[in-house]
Design a protein around this nucleic acid. Structure first.
Lengths: 353, 353
DNA sequence: ATCCCAACTGGAAGCGCTCCCAGTTTTCGG
DNA sequence: CCGAAAACTGGGAGCGCTTCCAGTTGGGAT
């Protein structure tokens, strides 16, 4: 075997099959043979490319059905240089981040849009060193056709990887201090401004801001929106009071604020968690909400509806964020040139303000 | 070109590169050439296989570094017939299922364990026809090394696909009416029994069951656990009162129950959502919890802690479920033979019982 | 009847990697 | 110092698919 010019491996495999492996997946060669055409015609027929006569096309279809043929996606990927998959990469410390309702919603939106574009969704967490290394390999080994990148911190190593990447990268939210070519963001500044203006329209004049991490773009931009609105109304903005987007940091910041500025009559919190924390601190201090102090949050997650009192908050379209990231990436993969996108926010008035 | 025996495609490409595409990813051939070894030696060195001298191994490593070489994962996949990815497939009607806190936790657990095994996570939703078709193709086109399958209904088409699959499949929870070779489940019967026994130990004798969908294994098995405990205590089990695991179905079922059996003094709900619904219906009917009617749920999701009163419930280790599914799959992919696994549950006593 | 061009076909060269195997070099006991 | 075993090397055949391109065919224009 092999001496006669016939590839010995193939020989053996066929013999093997006939004996005891009837369920091996058929290959395109076999389809072509059964259909009585050449492999290239079969390929063209499958991808309904032109230059295939009606007769042969049907013969191929028949053979495909008879054999139960399904193209091997890996081989196809190697030949076309397209994997058919997109990765959603989330940067962060904690593996539980996927359980965060925010990301869960992003995943829902992205998953739906990718299905539409016939791309598979790979989920990658760049939390540990190991995770980051795997992501880097994904980037460099062309393991996906494109990447959606979220939750970058200042000087995030993922930012460098993204720059070097040879595949399209779409950012969810802008990374700190740079404006990538392709991203989808929420109108953080506008939302914060609207919330603050609303508080001012209620007649409040001593409106404070509880900020999120100021090493994130969202944290900074929301504070900036607040400040702009205050200045525009001729009021003195409070200095930023930084938290880290958690409930407890909101409570702490609020308590400190009450000590320093007992006259505060409204609070804009950088997100719902911090808003709920503020609510708790206010309750602890015996202040009534909204009578003594009005509170507005940001996000409109489920927690805003069940808090006591329910939280007035800036709604952001999180599923849409995921969806638009995925659509943008799909467009890039298909060679189109989408443009960056900023999604609108909307104030949802509940009892807390 | 091409006349001299040199592949013309390659020729062109190299010329092209030299001129204006300096950043093409290097291939193993180029690494080998730079290191002064043959391609196979370079390959062996990379996969640190035996039969490579120390000197050459180091030469290869140096070349890899100089060129910034990263193996192309698709080519490797084709040659090894391993994709390096595992899919988590969820059956269901609603795309939002990924936002369900239950699945979010499964994803967290699976993601961590797969990272450990150096497998990528693909997320697939088999909700629409399109989704199911994509999953079928994934199965048949060998787009992943293995599949984790969850939330199968009775006669779920995914079950047939799984049977035909040529790759390992691990089930999360048993599908209805069959016991697959590999699965990870939670001790639904034991948990339900423990919950019911606890209610009985409180002196309750008219303990009702609010069931989940009886076309799911969990729904059925939890009812069975309840019934067993009742019979063992010499009490009459209530007939199953079916809901669909949602809060509103729990409220509806509870209201109906109160009409038919106003003497009920305890309720075992098939999950927390239904338990919370029952709480609402009881409050509406003016019954005190737990004084008049004690309520126990199942799952121990966040909602159980914030309900009023906080819900006594059967805790199940959801992250562990995801983790163990992933580990089992990884073991199968590596040719080992793990055995099915049933995870323990634990009663968490809060104020509602 | 002749010519030309479009439509179509299929052989063969890749895609980038792994791994078998035949061949070569090194090592070492006798 | 020799021969055989051990260690190592590298050519080459795949993996299963796409796609280029040289070549064939059919039909309408001339």
């Amino acid at each position: 075997m092999g001496e006669d010019g016939t590839p010995s491996g193939r020989q053996e495999r066929i013999a093997f099959m006939a004996e005891d492996a009837p369920r091996r997946q058929p290959t395109l060669d076999e389809v072509a043979e059964l259909a009585g055409v050449s492999r290239s015609v079969a390929s063209r027929a499958l991808n309904n490319a032109p230059h295939v006569s009606r007769v042969k096309r049907e013969a191929v279809e028949r053979a495909v059905r008879r054999l139960g043929y399904v193209p091997n996606s890996t081989a196809r990927a190697l030949a076309t240089r397209q994997t058919g998959a997109a990765a959603l990469v989330v940067s962060g410390e904690d593996p539980s981040i996927f359980a965060d309702p925010f990301f869960a919603q992003v995943i829902v939106g992205a998953s739906a849009a990718l299905e539409e574009a016939d791309l598979h969704l790979m989920l990658c967490l760049a939390a540990s060193d190991r995770g980051r290394k795997r992501v880097e390999e994904l980037f460099r080994s062309k393991g996906a056709d494109g990447v959606m990148l979220m939750a970058l911190r200042e000087d995030d190593p993922l930012a460098r990887m993204a720059e070097r990447a040879t595949m399209p990268v779409v950012f969810g939210g802008r990374p700190v201090g740079s404006v990538p070519r392709w991203y989808v963001d929420v109108d953080n500044a506008g939302g914060a401004r609207e919330a603050t203006e609303y508080l001012i329209s209620l007649g409040r004049t001593r409106v404070a801001a509880l900020c999120g991490r100021l090493d994130t773009e969202a944290g900074r931009t929301r504070y900036r929106g607040y400040r702009d609105a205050m200045l525009a109304a001729g009021l003195d903005p409070f200095p930023p009071r930084e938290g880290d987007f958690t409930e407890s940091s909101g409570a702490t910041a609020m308590a400190a604020l009450l000590t320093e500025r007992p006259d505060v009559d409204a609070v804009f919190a950088a997100n719902d968690n911090m808003g709920v924390g503020a609510l708790r601190a206010l309750r602890g201090a015996g202040r009534r909400v909204p009578d003594d102090v009005a509170v507005v949050g940001f996000d409109d997650l489920a927690v805003a509806q069940v808090s006591d009192p329910p939280l007035t908050t800036v709604h952001q379209p999180i599923q849409a964020l995921g969806r638009e990231m995925a659509r943008m990436l799909a467009a890039l993969v298909n060679g189109q040139s989408p443009t960056a996108l900023i999604l609108p926010t909307r104030l949802v008035v509940r009892a807390s303000a």
